[in-house]
């Protein structure tokens, strides 16, 4: 599961930020999961818990929010939402591994252009790290 690698990146970053900000303890990590990457939240949460345990980090609240994916066409300016059911299984899985495969497997539903922007909801990011100074 490649969710594990992304979960590891979250915890590694949180620890780095805590060290940089001289936090005595990390209390909460807020994570945004972009809809486009189709992360399995259960697997992701399990991976986060396991990695935290392996690093002897306890009592950290993990808050996960999913952000809907929105696209805007660079040609006709049409905006639209992610519709996974319009993709076949292999296309959706490719986007799960590499969200930019959206530019390979999707087109603007209004004008057919392959040139569009992911306005929001691309992938995994940390929105906030809270801790005790």
């Amino acid at each position: 599961m490649h969710e594990w690698a992304l979960a590891e990146s979250i915890i590694t970053t949180a620890v780095e930020v805590a060290e940089r900000e001289k936090l005595k303890k990390i209390e909460e990590i807020d994570i945004s999961l972009g809809e486009l990457q189709q992360i399995e939240e259960d697997i992701f949460r399990f991976a986060l818990d396991e990695i935290l345990k392996s690093m002897n980090l306890r009592n950290i609240k993990i808050v996960i929010e999913t952000e809907n994916a929105v696209f805007e066409c660079n040609k006709c300016k049409h905006t639209w939402n992610f519709e996974k059911d319009k993709l076949d299984e292999a296309e959706a899985e490719a986007i799960h591994f590499l969200p930019e495969m959206a530019f390979v497997h999707m087109r603007c539903p209004s004008c057919g252009s392959p040139d569009f922007t992911v306005i929001k909801g691309r992938g995994v990011s940390i929105t906030s790290i809270k801790g005790e100074k």
């Binding site: 690698a5 490719a94 590499l98 930019e100 495969m101 530019f103 390979v104 252009s113 392959p114 040139d115």
Partner: peptide
């Protein structure tokens, strides 16, 4: 492996995202 050898209309930020993602996973 993910593009099925089809073309992709990537802008600069997308190229950076692909590279970061591949290197991270």
């Amino acid at each position: 492996f993910y593009s099925e050898d089809k073309p992709g209309a990537f802008r600069g930020i997308d190229v950076s995202n692909i590279i970061r993602e591949l290197l991270a996973i």
